[in-house]
Simulated assay, not measured.
Amino acid sequence: MTDLGETTLEIDLGALAHNYAYLKKRLHKDTLFLAVVKAFAYGSDMVSVATKLQELGVDYFAVAYVKEGVLLRDAGITVPILVLHPQPKNFGELIDRCLEPSVYATRVLDAFIAAATQKKQADYPVHVKFNTGLNRLGFKADAIPGIAEKIRAQKAIKVKSLLSHLAASDDRDQTEFTQGQITKFREIITRMSSALGYLPICHLLNTSGVLHYPEAQFTMVRSGIGLYGFGNDANIDQMLRPVARLSTVISQIHHIAKGESVGYNHGHIAQNPMITATLPIGHADGIGRQYGRGRAAVVINGKQAPIVGNVCMDMIMVDVTHINCEEGDSVVIFGAEQSAEQFAHAADTISYEILTAISQRVSRRIIQ
């Protein structure tokens, strides 16, 4: 198939709607749905994805940093936005854009109370994060008395939700550990709500949690990777639709003699005469060097073409010796022909990494 285009990431909003509907069906009728759209909506297009989800009726968004929330507000997103990892220096801008911070440490709580007080806020919504075993961010349960005392002693903020994060919800061999996290979170909810005098929204489950631990939905769930078409489970993946499709074109075809090398540092030595195709995509576009030297392959005219030698900054070379193709033909890195999970697995990594790695210099095409 001839394609006179360029390297393009297609974003299928119909697939996004399908995945959202599939995940919603796994929830109780009253369970709120928080969509995680950080990292450019997992490497796709944050504004287009958030706009579509807002139209579909999502209850909350989550981003990692304040500047991501600002981008959404400037694009007209009005749904509440939780900032998962805010930094105190950005609290003024966060408040100005009506973003809601996750507070995960005493330093952050103190700084946000001060910022909200300075801006004359009352009952500004904050989300208190607890560490139940991931050991990344969050208060330990023994901090509850001190947290509650600080919050009761002022009027600038009010706790909108309590949250924690599962460490291994996708691993069925870690069920006992995950159940332990769920139990810890239930205890935290009881103690914290008693200390506050009210029960905030509570959320623990990520995509794999929604699929494997439906009894722990509480009042809200969070989904990221599932919205984009991956459930960390081959059976679930069949029920979802990949939102992103990365394709490029063949720039040039070379006939390589036996003994000749291909690419930087003689990354590949031809053991026999071969034909290679050069593609306009490289590690500056998100295809890291770990995919080179035959580990991963692209799809050309329905056939696998292994990456040959080292990945360059702007180009990769692939083996097309046994593929009928020509310059200008379309090439699929991941999509329906080969999932991002399959492409990533070849280099011993995960779909999250390849999806979020796709450079912003790659053209985006939104499919409605």
Score class of each variant (00 low, 15 high):
residue 79 V to M: 13
residue 79 V to T: 15
residue 79 V to R: 15
residue 79 V to W: 11
residue 80 P to H: 15
residue 80 P to G: 11
residue 80 P to V: 08
residue 80 P to F: 14
residue 81 I to N: 06
residue 81 I to G: 04
residue 81 I to V: 15
residue 82 L to N: 12
residue 82 L to E: 11
residue 82 L to W: 13
residue 84 L to A: 13
residue 84 L to Q: 08
residue 84 L to Y: 13
residue 85 H to W: 13
residue 85 H to Q: 13
residue 86 P to E: 07
residue 86 P to S: 11
residue 87 Q to G: 13
residue 88 P to C: 06
residue 88 P to L: 05
residue 88 P to M: 07
residue 88 P to W: 10
residue 88 P to V: 07
residue 89 K to A: 15
residue 89 K to F: 14
residue 89 K to N: 11
residue 90 N to F: 10
residue 90 N to A: 14
residue 90 N to G: 06
residue 91 F to A: 04
residue 92 G to V: 06
residue 92 G to W: 02
residue 92 G to Y: 01
residue 94 L to D: 09
residue 95 I to F: 04
residue 96 D to K: 11
residue 97 R to H: 13
residue 97 R to S: 02
residue 97 R to Q: 09
residue 98 C to S: 15
residue 98 C to G: 12
residue 98 C to L: 11
residue 98 C to A: 15
residue 99 L to C: 01
residue 99 L to N: 00
residue 99 L to T: 00
residue 99 L to A: 01
residue 100 E to H: 15
residue 100 E to K: 14
residue 101 P to D: 07
residue 102 S to I: 00
residue 102 S to P: 00
residue 102 S to M: 04
residue 103 V to W: 01
residue 103 V to E: 02
residue 103 V to N: 00
residue 103 V to I: 08
residue 103 V to M: 01
residue 104 Y to K: 00
residue 104 Y to D: 08
residue 104 Y to S: 01
residue 105 A to Y: 05
residue 105 A to Q: 09
residue 106 T to S: 12
residue 107 R to Q: 13
residue 107 R to A: 09
residue 108 V to M: 06
residue 109 L to E: 07
residue 110 D to Y: 08
residue 110 D to V: 00
residue 110 D to R: 02
residue 111 A to P: 02
residue 111 A to F: 01
residue 112 F to W: 02
residue 112 F to S: 01
residue 112 F to L: 03
residue 112 F to Q: 05
residue 113 I to A: 08
residue 114 A to C: 09
residue 114 A to N: 10
residue 114 A to Y: 10
residue 114 A to L: 12
residue 115 A to N: 02
residue 115 A to H: 00
residue 115 A to F: 06
residue 115 A to C: 07
residue 116 A to F: 01
residue 116 A to T: 02
residue 117 T to L: 09
residue 117 T to M: 06
residue 117 T to H: 12
residue 117 T to G: 04
residue 117 T to F: 12
residue 118 Q to H: 13
residue 118 Q to L: 09
residue 119 K to W: 08
residue 120 K to V: 05
residue 120 K to F: 06
residue 120 K to Y: 07
residue 120 K to L: 10
residue 121 Q to W: 05
residue 123 D to Y: 05
residue 123 D to M: 01
residue 124 Y to N: 14
residue 124 Y to Q: 10
residue 124 Y to E: 11
residue 124 Y to L: 03
residue 125 P to K: 12
residue 125 P to A: 10
residue 126 V to M: 00
residue 126 V to L: 03
residue 126 V to Y: 04
residue 127 H to A: 03
residue 127 H to D: 13
residue 127 H to P: 06
residue 127 H to G: 05
residue 128 V to F: 04
residue 128 V to N: 01
residue 128 V to I: 15
residue 129 K to Q: 10
residue 129 K to L: 03
residue 129 K to M: 10
residue 129 K to C: 06
residue 129 K to G: 03
residue 130 F to H: 08
residue 130 F to S: 02
residue 131 N to M: 09
residue 131 N to I: 05
residue 131 N to F: 11
residue 131 N to D: 15
residue 132 T to C: 11
residue 132 T to Y: 08
residue 132 T to E: 07
